[in-house]
């Protein structure tokens, strides 16, 4: 048995190394005083300086933030409703429609939305089309998070509230909402990171106008690879990492609070 676990441990270590070495390399080279991602020459913050002087990159970052904020607010509102509805009412259609965009390969979502925006809505592609597209697939994620929180709850507290004369609205904003709030916020943070990181769907629904962060990174990688890409990658990584840590802390943290209550 010990021998077996020993072999497993070697494989597991190699898998973890495979997962993390590439990311460490990206971060390390962002501080490297060389134009090439090859040899370690010396420490510098030059690439971050270049990045913050890159006007187009700053505009792209601003645009991406606006898109991620709008999409996550929309998706959180709609996804919370969907999560509640799926949990509360035994419906067949809603879960399928809500969860399908999560399971569909992104390219298919991108293509169908592109055709829809151009043919039916006659919309000029841009920020609006990207926000709608991102909301479409984020709704499912929020719904999953909200529903899984509801699953652990005792439904009789809602019935008790209703028996004691609470209106449906009172019941919702005095009991349901506070209880699911951590899941709602976690869902919002997840949506934000999914939106700001999304490349494929953005690529199809972006149009030609405004620069968007992932597209900007893509163009940089395809044309001139400099450690500036490493610098923006590192910053993005920090941002999403922080978001995800906050999200998990929120959900489990309040869970603990509930037990003590």
């Amino acid at each position: 048995m010990r021998n077996r676990n020993f072999r497993l441990r070697i494989v597991a270590t190699l898998v973890y190394a495979f997962l993390y070495i590439p990311l460490v390399i990206v971060v390390a080279y962002s501080f490297n005083n060389s134009r090439l991602n090859a040899e370690w020459v010396g420490f510098t913050l030059f690439w971050y300086e270049t990045l913050f002087n890159n006007k187009e990159m700053l505009v792209a970052a601003r645009n991406s933030l606006i898109i991620a904020l709008s999409a996550s607010i929309l998706a959180t509102a709609l996804g919370t409703m969907a999560g509640l509805a799926i949990h509360r009412y035994k419906l067949k259609v809603l879960p399928i429609i809500v969860l399908s965009p999560v399971a569909t390969p992104e390219i298919l979502l991108g293509v169908s939305l592109l055709l829809f925006f151009l043919q039916v809505l006659n919309l000029t592609l841009g920020m609006i089309s990207i926000i709608i597209a991102h909301t479409t697939f984020c709704i499912g994620f929020v719904a999953i998070i909200v529903r899984s929180r509801l699953q652990g709850m005792d439904w009789s507290i809602f019935e008790a509230a209703r028996d004691l004369g609470a209106s449906p609205w009172q019941c919702f904003h005095l009991i349901t909402l506070p209880l699911i709030m951590p899941a709602v916020v976690a869902g919002a943070l997840m949506s934000f990171t999914l939106s700001i990181d999304d490349f494929v769907i953005t690529f199809f629904t972006k149009g030609v106008g405004e620069p968007i962060l992932p597209i900007q990174i893509y163009t940089m990688i395809k044309t001139a690879v400099t450690p500036e890409v490493n610098a923006i990658s590192t910053l993005l990584m920090l941002l999403t990492l922080a978001m995800i840590i906050i999200a998990t802390k929120l959900d489990s943290g309040v869970l603990r609070g509930e037990v003590s209550r």
Partner: peptide
């Protein structure tokens, strides 16, 4: 956790590792 890093960044990392000067 690696999923938290941008998809393009993860591919870019392998462009560095497998690149001719690596």
């Amino acid at each position: 956790l690696p999923l938290a890093s941008n998809f393009l960044v993860r591919i870019y990392a392998w462009m560095i590792i497998l690149g001719p000067e690596s």
